[in-house]
């Protein structure tokens, strides 16, 4: 990670372009350091495309019931079989991907922004501010995230927005921790000192100069936490706290499939595989990148 060199006269947009370019270059390097990241990214992009195109490519309406055609094993007409109401499993998995990805991306996106901000403030100002903020975060971290999510969703009711809130809440403390450590490391470097001497404001130093330096680490953790978020959303749906039926969610499909597991095992099997593929691809992506951005593991490759 290099600190972007610049003069105070550089225009804001030019500066932004330099910062983004160095971020992109950093990520590209990280990708190439560990080839498995590319595989993870490729699989995840395919899943995201399938989810995006679900309305076009899904062979059936995911909510269309057909009582005469229920609990059918996989066939040419229904590649992955049909469920208890005669709905097409493949179509429901494709549409379910939209729910999983939407909730995961929105929850982790907001947790990343809020958590990073909190962590940067704690690390940048240090002292009592740091102590107080991190103490609060530690208390939140002490609580098992699934239990916290369970209670929040049970309180607020199962809707996409509430699930996003519940999952984001559990992910904010880890992001604040992830952002805090590199902030402390960067804030003592000469270029920040130079910024102070030039009379730059705190926000300008934090967002213009520290943020670009800690962004790669935060983004890498983002991919790993997206995997966690998708897992938690599915777990909540499995417990019965997902987006309300008949909307197709992967966790909800496994829950329904579990009720018919003795005679129609594929109902639980296929959505299980779908979750596994997405979560594994994100872990593969994030794990490879983390090795590359983690300074402790330098030279391992």
């Amino acid at each position: 990670m290099t600190s972007p060199s610049h003069s105070p006269r550089l225009s804001r947009s030019a500066y932004l372009r330099i910062a983004l370019a160095s971020l992109a270059a950093g990520l590209f390097k990280a990708f190439n350091a560990n080839k498995t990241s590319w595989i993870g990214l490729a699989v995840f992009v395919i899943v995201a495309l399938l989810a995006l195109l679900a309305p076009v490519i899904a062979p059936y309406d995911p909510l269309d019931q057909n009582i005469l055609n229920r609990l059918k094993a996989p066939s040419a007409a229904h590649w992955l079989g049909t469920d208890y109401y005669g709905r097409d499993t493949l179509s429901r998995i494709l549409w379910g991907a939209r729910i999983s990805l939407t909730i995961g991306l929105m929850a982790i996106g907001s947790a990343m922004v809020i958590g990073t901000l909190i962590g940067m403030i704690a690390g940048y100002f240090g002292g009592r501010t740091d102590l107080l903020i991190m103490q609060v975060m530690d208390v939140l971290l002490a609580f098992p995230s699934l239990i916290l999510g369970l209670i929040v969703v049970a309180m607020l009711g199962p809707s996409v927005a509430n699930l996003v809130i519940a999952i984001a809440l559990t992910a904010i403390p880890p992001f604040s921790r992830i952002a805090r450590a590199p902030t402390i490391a960067v804030k003592n470097r000469e270029f920040i000192e130079a910024g102070h001497a030039l009379g730059y404001s705190h926000p300008r130093l934090m967002f213009g100069h520290i943020l670009p330096n800690i962004a790669p680490e935060v983004l890498v953790m983002g991919s790993l936490w997206l995997a966690t978020a998708i897992r938690v959303e599915a777990s909540l749906a499995f417990i019965g706290l997902g987006v309300n039926p008949p909307t197709a969610t992967w966790g909800g499909m496994i829950r329904e499939g579990f009720e018919n597991i003795l005679d129609s095992f594929w109902l639980a099997l296929f959505p299980s595989l779908a979750i596994l593929i997405v979560v594994f691809s994100l872990n593969l992506l994030g794990d490879g990148l983390r090795d590359a951005v983690d300074p402790r593991l330098k030279g391992e490759q």
């Binding site: 995997a227 897992r231 599915a234 777990s235 499995f238 966790g251 496994i254 579990f258 597991i261 003795l262 095992f265 639980a268 099997l269 299980s272 979750i275 596994l276 979560v279 594994f280 872990n283 593969l284 794990d287």
Partner: peptide, 22 residues
């Protein structure tokens, strides 16, 4: 190990149940 921590606990539980119990 990466695969292991990609399993939501209920997915692996359902798969174990399918295979070993059923």
């Amino acid at each position: 190990s990466l695969l292991g921590l990609s399993f939501p606990a209920f997915v692996s539980a359902v798969l174990l149940l399918l295979f070993f119990s059923i």
